[in-house]
Simulated assay, not measured.
Amino acid sequence: MTETTVDDRALPPALAEISALEFDYDEGNGIDFEPYAAFDSPEETTDWLRNWTGNHDLDGGAYRVFGQDGTGGLAALWCIRPRPPLAEQPVVFMGSEGACGVVAGNLSDFLWVLADGIGPMEAVEYDDHTSRPDPTLTSLAQRHATTARRTAQAIIADARAEFPTYAEDIDALCQ
């Protein structure tokens, strides 16, 4: 897996705005997501990736962790594309029990996934991506998104098609 790091460690404006929100899990009917006010440090990210995979030779430089679910699974920007800004990098999720996958092809599409009522954990761990629009998150997406609104289901399917081997590539890093 080719890794391209991006030096910017500041949250993009949309993620900064998301970090001020509280997400309601609603006993499984909402979004299980706790956004961070800042990216995890490079050291924390490397420690997390090494512990998650059991591979202590890895470096977490290709990830910018920006939130978690209630069990400790992490959402991150995956800096795989050379040189684009952070907002153009795909959003991924790595669950506490080993599930992982690509949530959206970029931050803009991730905003539409959230607006559709689907969080990063739900996008990866469940196949039912039934739309449950959230007015607050829809308003946020309308202010920040640079891509056209689409359903979470379409965005997730497109991200999986663009990065079809992500989960297998991560599994191959595990020891």
Rank of each mutant, 00 (worst) to 15 (best):
M1K: 10
M1R: 09
T2Y: 07
E3F: 14
D7G: 14
D8G: 00
D8K: 03
L11I: 09
P13A: 14
A14N: 05
E17T: 11
S19T: 02
F23V: 10
G28A: 05
N29E: 15
D32F: 13
F33Q: 03
P35F: 01
Y36K: 08
Y36F: 14
Y36H: 14
A38M: 08
F39N: 04
D40G: 04
P42L: 08
T45W: 09
T45L: 05
T46Q: 12
W48P: 02
W48H: 06
W48I: 02
T53S: 07
T53R: 06
T53C: 07
G54C: 09
G54W: 02
H56Q: 13
L58C: 11
G60N: 09
A62N: 02
Y63G: 01
V65H: 01
D69I: 05
G70T: 13
T71H: 14
G72P: 05
G73L: 14
A75Y: 05
A76S: 02
L77F: 01
W78M: 00
W78S: 00
C79V: 02
C79W: 04
I80H: 02
R81T: 11
P82K: 13
Q89N: 02
P90Y: 05
V92C: 05
M94E: 14
G95F: 08
G95Q: 09
E97W: 06
C100H: 10
C100M: 11
G101S: 05
V103W: 02
A104G: 04
G105Y: 05
L114C: 06
A115M: 10
A115T: 09
G117I: 02
G117S: 03
I118C: 11
E122G: 04
A123N: 04
A123Q: 01
V124L: 03
V124S: 03
V124T: 01
E125R: 04
Y126A: 07
R132I: 00
P133G: 05
P135I: 06
P135H: 12
T138N: 10
S139P: 10
Q142S: 11
Q142E: 15
H144P: 08
T146D: 08
T146V: 04
R149Q: 15
R150L: 13
A154C: 03
I155E: 08
A157V: 01
A159H: 06
A159Q: 00
E162Q: 15
D169I: 06
I170C: 10
I170L: 15
D171V: 12
A172L: 15
L173K: 08
L173M: 12
C174R: 15
